[in-house]
Design a binder for these strands. Structure first.
Lengths: 128, 128
DNA sequence: TTCATGCTTGCAAAGTTTTGAATATGTAGA
DNA sequence: TCTACATATTCAAAACTTTGCAAGCATGAA
């Protein structure tokens, strides 16, 4: 019964690609709209070459696609729903957060999910 | 705005734990019911010490919990819903499968999701 | 042409994870 | 007690990933 193992292997590769904070941030940025490498580099505050390396890995695994516009390379998510799936992962980190308050998670979810409530108003604690 | 980065980092750690075929298989096995280390080792056809290593990593990250029963350690998922979330990842691999037919994925989904249709009958190709 | 811009690629060093084998611990029964 | 069994832990080697930097292509404008 090796197809179980094959599928587990493919799934593991999927998880490996996502398992990097920069790449998660990239997916988050691209979720809102397509962007060129420099805008992404500015948004994440990383050297463009690093961003390009991540993008090329993600391109190889068909997470993103690029299109040229003059000298810019405009990247977009091939399956934007992947971003929703990633946010669902937040359900499983509420327990093991190190230096991350429930508020951070709530506001992260808002940032990903809805618009951009920038910083949540300083509530003492959230439970509602 | 560093909470974005913090959350991305935590998410990345979550993904890293899952990003190993053996650990995915372990979650798959534990989804059905709690099991001891030897049963898991037999099911995955791996040395028990390797399974124990994976379990101890997963235990450290609160994916699993163990309970003693005589000399056996019975493991179970802390949040069984994580298994459902992992299966959803299958939606994103249908494109980039290497040596993995749509049927393999369909039957993998069945194995994880429903009961155990063991091996899907040899259909030429599936589209319905 | 030449130049600047925007991105990509290559490479070695640093860091991390995985693996296998050996050794240790804890429990049950003789 | 001693022995067998079930699992955990430790350690080093191998495999893999990430990083930083430098050099390399394209494109567009002068």
């Amino acid at each position: 019964m090796p197809s179980r193992n094959l599928v587990a292997k493919e799934l593991a590769e999927l998880f490996k690609i996502v398992a990097h904070p920069d790449r998660i941030r990239l997916i988050e940025e691209l979720r809102a709209s397509q962007k060129d490498v420099n805008s992404l580099a500015d948004a994440l505050d990383l050297p463009a070459s690093r961003v390009s390396q991540h993008l090329s890995l993600m391109r190889a695994h068909r997470f993103v696609e690029d299109e040229r516009e003059g000298r810019k390379h405009i990247y977009k998510l091939v399956q934007p729903e992947i971003a929703d799936w990633i946010v669902e992962g937040l359900d499983f980190i509420e327990g093991r957060m190190r230096g991350l308050s429930p508020r951070d998670i709530k506001s992260a979810r808002a940032l990903w999910t809805g618009g951009d409530p920038a910083s949540t108003p300083p509530t003492t604690d959230v439970n509602s």
